[in-house]
């Protein structure tokens, strides 16, 4: 084995094992190994979460002194139409993004064959996930663009006038979500392809002998075995939906008339863009988004915790 030379060397150094020193060492060791990573994570992730919550109680432009305003940022949110628009859009994102899971499963089932060249097909179907959301956003902006976009021309061919999906406050969010679904479906597809690879063939054969096929086979035999893949697909899709920022920023800047804002984008707009440096108000929006996210995160962690203890 490759490990043997490494093991004999320190033994020669220490000679007799020193149990007391070793035990102390082993107690301290994990903390030394953890220290650099934990420190970085503390400074850049954990403490900032607390700080954001704290800042949300202040009025602050990022430069002059902070003024304590208590809950008034949150009270202002309750009266802010832009906040409700963002919240509603986040909800639409969350619901429609879930479509990535059945679509991903469908493509995975379609591609789960062993014909020649199927590996290339799988990679090419996965392609949209690898490219940056900025590029996806630009691609779809072009795709939707009135006058020359492929999508616009297609709809023009169908209805005579064409649909400028990003220019209409009623359709813009759906247009952006469609762009977001493109890479997300690819992600879910790859999760299911991996899962399908591990489905026990003997169970499938046994069910086939019992006369199961098609949808029934999928529902009662295959899907239960794909549960780990489905769990991860749900996690990454929920997080992806709530994190949506890049596409909104690239494709519409929240417009037209702020109708495609989501919480993450609205927060950025309030705290950093040319619209103002309202750090406190922005932080309050971020805290709301964080609270929504925590509901899901707690659920995931709770399930992982149960699995860990079951091991």
């Amino acid at each position: 084995m490759t490990v043997s030379p490494a093991m004999s060397e320190p033994r020669a150094e220490t000679g007799m094992p020193a149990p007391r020193r070793r035990r102390l060492n082993r107690k301290l060791a994990p903390w030394l190994f953890l220290a650099p990573g934990v420190l970085m994570f503390l400074i850049y992730v954990l403490i900032p979460i607390g700080e954001s919550m704290w800042i949300s109680f202040f009025q602050w432009d990022g430069l002059s002194a902070k003024t304590w305003v208590g809950l008034s940022n949150y009270l202002e949110l309750l009266d802010d139409d832009a906040f409700y628009t963002s919240l509603k859009n986040n909800l639409i994102w969350l619901v429609l993004y879930m479509l990535a899971i059945p679509f991903g499963l469908f493509i995975a089932l379609f591609l789960n064959q062993t014909v020649r060249g199927i590996r290339i097909y799988k990679s090419l179907f996965f392609f949209p996930f690898v490219i940056s959301q900025v590029v996806v956003g630009l691609i779809f902006s072009w795709f939707y663009a009135p006058g020359f976009g492929l999508f616009f021309e297609l709809t023009k061919w169908l209805d005579g006038t064409g649909i400028a999906i990003l220019a209409n406050p009623n359709t813009v969010t759906y247009g952006i979500i469609a762009a977001g679904l493109w890479p997300q479906i690819a992600y879910c597809m790859i999760l299911y392809l991996t899962g399908l690879n591990a489905v026990a063939p003997d169970q499938i054969e046994a069910a086939r002998l019992d006369g199961a096929k098609g949808i029934k086979m999928l529902w009662y035999v295959v899907l239960p075995q794909l549960r780990p893949a489905t769990f991860i697909a749900v996690v990454v899709t929920v997080i992806g939906a709530l994190r949506s920022f890049d596409l909104v920023s690239i494709m519409t800047d929240g417009g037209p008339f702020g109708s495609s804002r989501v919480l993450s984008y609205y927060m950025y707009e309030q705290a950093l863009s040319e619209y103002g440096y309202r750090m406190g108000y922005g932080a309050a929006i971020a805290v709301v988004l964080f609270a929504i996210m925590m509901i899901f995160i707690s659920g995931f962690i709770w399930k992982m915790w149960r699995d860990e203890r079951g091991l």
């Binding site: 850049y44 900032p48 700080e51 954001s52 927060m267 962690i301």
Partner: peptide, 30 residues
């Protein structure tokens, strides 16, 4: 290693990885 707080630290890493970027934005920029 088995030690007290092992799972807790692990899950803090996992949870932290999922938080929205915006909750970190202002303090990290500062």
């Amino acid at each position: 290693y088995k030690f007290k707080g092992n799972l807790l630290i692990f899950f803090i890493f996992v949870a932290g990885n999922f938080v929205p970027f915006q909750i970190l934005m202002v303090p990290v920029r500062e």
